[in-house]
Design a protein around this nucleic acid. Structure first.
Lengths: 339, 339
DNA sequence: CTGAAAGCGCTAACAC
DNA sequence: GTGTTAGCGCTTTCAG
């Protein structure tokens, strides 16, 4: 059913129907009521394609992320959604599994769909890939730095210095052999964390030993296995910085199963997931401001989409991650337990 | 830029361009190559609206759920995505916060967008709301039963009998005073769980006492607070069935802070989240087959969308939730630790 | 305040 | 294999 049928039934022209839809105030109240009534009666829904054929704005934005089971990125997505709804936009969510190929496929499809904009979380794209998006004139915002993010619109957090702070805290508490577990699927984010780790060790004059720099699946099991390996190695550490809370939970479990305490092996995670407050010992972690990052990225994207002034110097916003000290690194004095 | 410009530049008709896009095999190889080259050169992207104006299929499905921070429902969404990708469809994800009003708004917008289908997870809609969707001829599948789900296409799990089994297990282990904590935002799902709880108590000839049937925010803190309340009540329970793992984590924490053990107060959760294997004591929980529910719902939806045969007797598929026994309910003999 | 008519960019008969 | 042409359902001038 189409506008024409409604027009016939209501005894007016299609123009009037169109006006009722788009500029009701320009229509005589009685006519309008009649039209609305026939629409209701005929259960009419205007054709979205025909409607948008002229403007080509979809009110749809794409959000691309590695994995929708990662809580912290879903918090981020929630922040984006909040902003999107204010703009009457919906979100198409796509998982990449850190696969550049899949990421490109998703993006290609989304561009074909004429989405209004794109938010790429922990993207794996290269400079060339990004250039393709730019050629298509699709506004986009990156979340988290990547190898290709320089000069792009971006929202990120201080993975490096926050990690530096966390590792320094361990050193400050007297830990001498500090290991690190990073996710297998290596992202730029993890490289930043690794850099922070290295610098902290250097500044504290601690040895940087490859044997205690481990990669693991970013899961509980991954953290568990890696930690067991560390415990049984020649260089058994007295502290571990774990790049994600999820793996850190596995680490804590491994330490417990080996009948060790947080005094013997301290653990610090990264993300600040809520459950961290319930594992035992409660997880010390670097709290990433995910929701606010989402809000910020959303606002930035809509600024780009709506920018008709032509200002287009790119923005880079950094939101601070902060160390949240709890029991898992064995501290006693500086204890500020949270909830 | 449009098909016409490309046609002019390539020195062919627009039909040929269209054919290169839609039926490349019907075009002379040389012509095709030339066209593709000019497309590339002009950086042409076909207009999605114009393309779809005739068929009105968007390859977009809506997935509506209460909260994208609930892990188990995101697993479900991942199952749906898997199927959607096979069908070259994308997913628009919408949060409702269990608010029927918001849910209706989302649906209305999605229908205006001409989505091909809809999956409603733990919907709050009434029969009338569903009728509106039907009037618009949008295929939809429900996930989890609702007050209005009778006679609709649905994928669900045995919340009632699984809860019955869990509570019975507690009774069997000798627990006498079994409390229940259900989410504040009451959904049909929770009513089912409550029913299972009541029937188990009845069959085990245990008293059903309103004082130990609590509602709480579906968060760690909510479970924590409710459990503290139970611990300090006249009717201090020796076991708690908690309707979600998230709240159960809070419950475990409260029990520990009160220096009680799982022998004194056993806990069983619901969902089967992975972190449950890392909290201490490890959480006994009812494992919901979320991912498979997602796959099933996705397949069911596309069956509806693609059904040209006219068969339309509705389907109701039940996937079984199962008790996963770990330490949090103090069992000793029947211990089959899993993770 | 209302209507007629010319597109929007593409697809699909139908001719050649 | 390729081109001509008539729509798809709506918005938007431009008249009245």
């Amino acid at each position: 059913m189409n506008i024409k049928e409604v027009a016939e039934r209501a005894g007016v022209s299609i123009t009037t129907i169109s006006r009722v839809l788009n500029a009701p105030e320009k229509v005589n109240v009685k006519t309008k009521e009649k039209v609305l009534a026939t629409m209701e009666e005929m259960n009419y829904t205007p054709n979205w394609f025909a409607r948008n054929l002229q403007h080509s704005r979809t009110n749809l934005i794409g959000v691309i992320l590695p994995d929708n089971l990662q809580q912290s990125n879903m918090e981020l997505a929630k922040g984006i959604e909040k902003i999107a709804l204010q703009k009457e936009c919906n979100i198409i969510l796509c998982n990449t599994g850190y696969d550049r190929h899949i990421e490109n496929e998703h993006i290609q499809r989304l561009i074909e769909r004429s989405i209004d904009g794109l938010i790429l979380i922990s993207s794996t794209l290269t400079k060339e890939d990004l250039d393709i998006i730019k050629d298509k004139a699709v506004p986009f915002v990156l979340v988290e730095k990547t190898a290709a993010s320089k000069g792009e619109n971006i929202v990120y957090t201080n993975n490096d210095t926050a990690t530096y702070e966390a590792v320094s805290y361990l050193a400050e508490m007297g830990r001498k052999t500090i290991a690190i577990i990073t996710p297998l699927k290596n992202s730029f984010t993890n490289e930043e964390k690794l850099r922070g780790y290295r610098e902290a060790l250097k500044d504290w004059k601690l040895e940087i030993d490859k044997e205690i720099i481990l990669k693991a699946e970013d899961t509980l099991e991954g953290g568990f296995a890696a930690t067991n390996k560390l415990i049984n190695s020649d260089k058994k550490p007295d502290a571990i910085f774990v790049c994600t809370d999820t793996m850190a939970f596995g680490a804590i479990e491994a330490i417990r199963q080996n009948n060790l305490t947080s005094d013997e092996i301290g653990v610090i995670g990264f993300d600040g997931l809520e459950v961290g407050a319930v594992v035992e010992p409660k997880l010390t972690t670097v709290k990433r401001p995910s929701y606010r990052m989402g809000l910020t990225a959303g606002r930035m994207l809509f600024d780009l989409i709506e920018n008709e002034t032509g200002e287009d110097d790119e923005q880079a916003v950094m939101l601070q991650s902060k160390l949240l000290i709890r029991k898992s690194c064995g501290n006693r004095e500086r204890l500020r337990e949270i909830w």
